[in-house]
Write a protein that binds this DNA or RNA. Structure first.
Lengths: 259, 259
DNA sequence: CGGTGGATTGACAGGAGTCAACGTCTGTGG
DNA sequence: CCACAGACGTTGACTCCTGTCAATCCACCG
């Protein structure tokens, strides 16, 4: 199986290297490092998507990690009882799919929210067969990179667990908007004026609220002068106030400390 | 290096080998595998604690992972605003400290809840200096073990994020009790009658409730015949009902699906 | 014995969910 | 070009779960 796919702005001839040399995200990409370390079996494989197209389905066999090159993706987790939880949004330069390494299948379903592109990093290293016949094809340093990435994910999830419990709706939405702003900035967009890539219902689900609550809070933020909102277009007018809201000391909810 | 030492009830002279050969948890312990792979620098180091003694403080320099041998531990995370979140309880055979690998310092403060013992697994491999001067002292397979452990942690955290958002107080406590029961069983205790190692306030904090709510639910479970409770002693009388409660289809709360 | 911390219980209040109506935007087809 | 459907978003009225405040009880301990 030859791997020839296209990646948006990149022509076929250069696909063998998956366009890594021209990829703006290569410094953040473990594939780049793995390949640089002389591993011939790891090669980033670019793919493009339209809005609503599925990247991977929960339960599908693990076939690598995914690095976002452009656009936006959404991961959802479906509980035993059918409840759906939006576990995260993925912006350019971010990576997803790590939960699949251990179980050898993905835990989340991930779809594109828009016209988007990404690279699959086929870590054959982590599939069942290859791991049982260990070879030293991958240098210790490259795996260290991966381990650190994963450790970072663990840390971020932990603070998201924290947020889920300790924040009321207002603080949580403020924090979410600042987070989006930050990440938009990191991947080259404006920090203070951007288009939300997800629907209100997705935001609500992600923050464990209902869409009515999110909607109400948006209008509240507007009337208080923190934001200008028009549909999904958001402009941050008073970042300081939002930050105070998100980080400010808790105002009387869930104050119980634990030993 | 001779390997004959014991933990807890063991004398000093034998500490050098950390008692791995006699340790009941060795099959679940990455240290065992690392040592078996011929890595001389990785050696499990046993320590004992009394209740309330601190294992590691958040912010402290990372010095390895911790494997619980006996007793119980509690990890807490302190948010910027001072809020405390109980991020987890650790039972015998379980491992903690992974969030420290990437940041090179621990994110959680972990204390013993009781007289307890554990082994520190000093993964010098992951400290700043050694990782910058990579050596192949650790085999690919042993790191794979670690990567899989971490992937599992990521998966578990994700489902805990799910629980936090999608469960009301009653379901959440039921699920928590079943989880504790399961883990108690796994480490050799009775599944249906055990002593909770944590206070109501710790449970409440962990589940993002207040202790009054937890207390009320305990009495409710008792009057409904699911449990017998006396202080921290718990007996599960109707596991089926608890399971139905925890897993049952959501009863009208947070039902909004996301695309 | 009194003090302290953990646990239980009751009365009350409020934040956020539920239900429902309405408004806006987009794409499609006649 | 308009009508219409459907998805998405806003707003209001109401309910209820769970947090807040407070009193009480119990076990433990110096």
């Amino acid at each position: 199986m030859d791997s020839k796919v296209e990646c948006i702005t990149i022509r076929r001839s250069s696909l063998q290297t998956a366009g890594c040399t021209t990829c703006q995200k290569r410094t953040q990409c473990p594939a780049n490092e793995l390949m640089a370390s002389g591993n011939a079996t790891v090669r980033a494989i670019p793919r493009t998507f339209r809005g609503n197209e599925t990247v991977v389905k929960a339960g599908q066999r693990f076939d690598g990690l995914y690095m976002v090159r452009s656009g936006f993706f959404k991961s959802t987790f479906v509980g035993r009882n059918g409840d759906v939880q939006v576990t995260g949004f993925h912006f350019p330069g971010e990576i997803f799919g790590m939960e699949g390494i251990e179980a050898d299948c993905y835990g989340d379903t991930t779809i594109a929210l828009d016209s988007s592109s990404l690279c699959r990093i086929p870590l054959a290293l982590f599939t069942a067969e290859t791991s049982s016949t260990p070879s030293n094809t991958v240098s210790t340093t490259s795996i260290l990179t991966l381990v650190k990435l994963m450790s970072a994910v663990i840390g971020r999830q932990r603070s998201s667990i924290f947020d889920l419990g300790k924040m009321d709706a207002k603080r949580h939405l403020a924090a979410f908007l600042l987070d989006v702003s930050e990440r938009m900035g990191k991947c080259g967009y404006q920090r203070d004026a951007f288009r939300l890539c997800m629907s209100r219902i997705d935001i609500a689900n992600h923050l464990n609220l209902v869409l009515e609550t999110v909607s109400r809070l948006f209008t509240q933020f507007v009337t208080e002068g923190y934001l200008a909102v028009s549909g999904r277009e958001v402009r941050i007018l008073n970042r300081a106030a939002l930050t105070r809201l998100a980080e400010g000391n808790p105002e009387g909810r869930l104050l119980q400390k634990a030993g």
